[in-house]
């Protein structure tokens, strides 16, 4: 990111983010922390191309979003970025396989013939047994839902994985298991990991950790 500034159109003079220069190396596992309302989700939306900066340049995996149309950004996101949400955000009326298929649906490799065997192999790697694959996700335990959300984020073998406070509703043991599983899979696939949380105690699991305030020079008022 270079000279990036972002403010909402309802209060254009109040910058939420002002980042002079910030970059993450490929394959790094980075923990970003900051209090609620500090602009973490906005930063992630900018990196995903869901929101557009008012000023500056954002390059993700070597591509600049400035030159891309919304449609191109959507496509780029579908192919190169995996996302894990705070509440895992699985679609309740779909089963585990269909939730994972959804991630594939919008990418250019949507019609690959060996897709299902790949999903099955990934789910087995994540210790999700075949009897749970076709059950609606709301019938799965929280731990199983976590693993489905990881599978969905990884199925396209994205070069960048973004995790937005995915452990906030977990107890410590589940949280540690989740992070170690995620980091090991990211290493295996060679994906860059951006893990965002307000919980600073998680920094022990990551190579690098930074506070958002270190890179954001905008004064954010909660």
């Amino acid at each position: 990111m270079k000279n990036v500034e972002f403010s909402y159109s309802i209060s254009p003079k109040k910058n939420i983010l002002k980042i002079v220069h910030w970059h993450v190396k490929q394959g790094e596992q980075l923990f970003i922390h900051g209090p609620s309302g500090s602009g973490k989700s906005t930063l992630l939306n900018l990196i995903c191309g869901l929101q557009t900066a008012n000023l500056g340049n954002i390059r993700v995996l070597g591509k600049s979003f400035d030159m891309m149309s919304t449609r191109q950004k959507d496509k780029y996101r579908a192919e190169h970025i995996g996302y894990i949400f705070q509440q895992f955000n699985l679609i309740e009326y779909l089963n585990a396989i269909d939730n994972i298929k959804l991630a594939r649906h919008f990418s250019s490799s949507a019609h690959e013939a060996d897709f299902l065997p790949k999903v099955h192999a990934l789910l087995l790697t994540l210790n999700l047994t075949s009897q749970d694959w076709y059950r609606p996700v709301n019938q799965l335990s929280v731990g199983q839902q976590q693993r489905v959300s990881i599978a969905r984020a990884l199925i396209n073998k994205p070069k960048l994985i973004i995790a937005d406070e995915p452990t906030s509703s977990l107890d410590q043991a589940s949280r540690d298991n989740f992070i170690s599983l995620l980091t090991s899979l990211c290493k295996k696939y060679g994906s860059t990991l951006l893990f965002v949380s307000h919980d600073m105690s998680l920094c022990q699991h990551f190579d690098i950790s930074i506070a958002l305030a270190q890179i954001n020079s905008a004064k954010v008022i909660n």
């Binding site: 959507d74 996101r77 996302y83 949400f85 509440q87 679609i91 919008f106």
Partner: peptide
């Protein structure tokens, strides 16, 4: 809302 947000992140256009 969450479902819409998810679909957008996954690459669905508005």
């Amino acid at each position: 809302r969450q479902e819409i947000q998810l679909l957008r992140i996954l690459g669905a256009s508005p």
